[in-house]
Design a protein around this nucleic acid. Structure first.
Lengths: 107, 107
DNA sequence: CCTTCATGCCTAGCAATGCTAGGCATAGTG
DNA sequence: CACTATGCCTAGCATTGCTAGGCATGAAGG
């Protein structure tokens, strides 16, 4: 799968993961991996900045916690985040409909 | 629909359009518009450079023709382009499967 | 004839985003 | 004290679609 395919869709995926249960960065990465059956295996350099963007946008909020003596940043979704997730799901549906119409279209 | 959503998927759409019948740039734009039921309304500055990329990659080839006294660059898909289109369709299917698994997943 | 407008193509530069590569701090082990 | 593993973070890059504007040809108006 080409790397650029993910562009613009990652935010929705992250919101969906965090909405399904608060986790820290590594947890998000492995949840993505598991839920997608291995299709998504994203590096930290992709996920961390994206989480920060979402927090800066007010869609997630984070707090530090200590587990096994290590600092972990744990994310939770906000009300605005849930609304955004709802929009993202709708966007995704219309996007796939449009792409399917063109790709599958006449062939 | 957010602009970035399209990133990485445009090439496949263009290949599919040209595969469905050779056209010039404007023709591609309106075909995208029509087939997607208005969802895709892409500016020239998006489509022309993308067509050039695909031609440089050997997936499309173009020739000049004159219609109604105006120069038109008409695109046709190559064998490599058809193979790439096939791959893109497969990529699209696995991508949607993975995203659906995460987005629709547990909710 | 000269000016104005429409068609159709093209490109420079920008902004957004995911990735590569590398760094920081703490805890446990020899 | 050195060394490794866990977990977080960031700088800089490459790609890509978009905005804004330009070029050439042909048709319409004074």
């Amino acid at each position: 799968m080409k790397a650029e395919a993910l562009k613009g869709h990652l935010d929705g995926l992250l919101l969906a993961i965090v909405d399904g249960g608060s986790t820290h960065g590594y947890g998000v990465i492995s949840a993505l991996h598991d839920r997608s059956d291995g299709a998504f295996d994203l590096p930290e350099g992709t996920v961390y900045p994206a989480l920060h963007r979402l927090e800066r946008a007010g869609l997630l909020e984070s707090s530090w916690s200590t587990a096994a003596g290590r600092r972990r940043r744990v994310y939770a979704i906000t009300a605005a985040g849930r609304a955004a997730l709802h929009d993202r799901r709708a966007d995704w549906r219309s996007f796939t409909t449009a792409v399917d119409a063109v790709l599958g279209g006449v062939a």
